[in-house]
Amino acid sequence: MLWGSVVLFTLVVGLFAATLFHPRFGRGLSQSGWIVWGGLVLPLPVLTALTFYAFSQGEFLLNGGSDKTEDVLEVRAVGSMWQWQFSYPSLPGSRTATDLLHIPAGRTIEIIAESEDVIHSFWVPRLGGKIDAVPGHANRLRIHADQPGRYGGVCSEYCGTGHAGMRFEVRAHTADDFEKAIIGELAR
C-alpha cells in the first residue's frame, strides 16, 4: 500500500509538473483520453483489488489473525475512568487484574470490551487492531501474540482528562507461566 501510494503520488505530481513546464506535453492524448485513462482505468482496478484484499484480510483478523480458531481464550476487559480491569470468565480461580493483562503466547485471545462509564478503546499496537468499549455493549476483538514478552497498550478513544494516562501492559507468557500468572503466583 505504501509503495503503491508513492507511485501514484509521484505520477500525479509528475504529470502536473510536466504539463506546467513542458508546453505541448500530453497534447498527444485527447482530453477525454486523459480523463478515461487517469480517472477511471487507473484507479478502478487498483481500488477494486485493494478493497477485496482488505475484505479478506478483515475476515482473517476477525478470526484473530491465525487459522487456529478452535482454542480461543476469552478475556473480559472493562474500561472505566481511567483504568482497565481484566478477568477470565472461563478460568475459575483466576484473579482480576488492573491495567495488566496476562495472556498465553501463541493462542488466540478474544477480548470482550465493556465500559462502565464513557467510551474507551482497547488497543495494543503491536498485537492487532483496536476495539471500542461502548457502555451498554460488549464488543469483541481477537488478538494474538506469537512470542512471550511485554507489550504496551493504550486507550485510544478520548475519555476525559485521564485519557493520556490510561495505559496498560500486556504480558504474554508461556503456557506454564500463564497458569501461574493468573492466580498471582508468578514472581515478577
Binding site: 477494486t48 478493497t51 475484505f55 478483515g58 475476515e59 476477525l62 464488543n139 469483541r140
Partner: peptide
C-alpha cells in the same frame, strides 16, 4: 454492484 458484494461472504453479525 460494488458496494454490497460483501453480503455474499463476509461475517454477517458480530457475536
Amino acid at each position: 454492484a460494488f458496494c454490497f458484494t460483501g453480503v455474499v461472504w463476509l461475517t454477517l453479525c458480530s457475536a
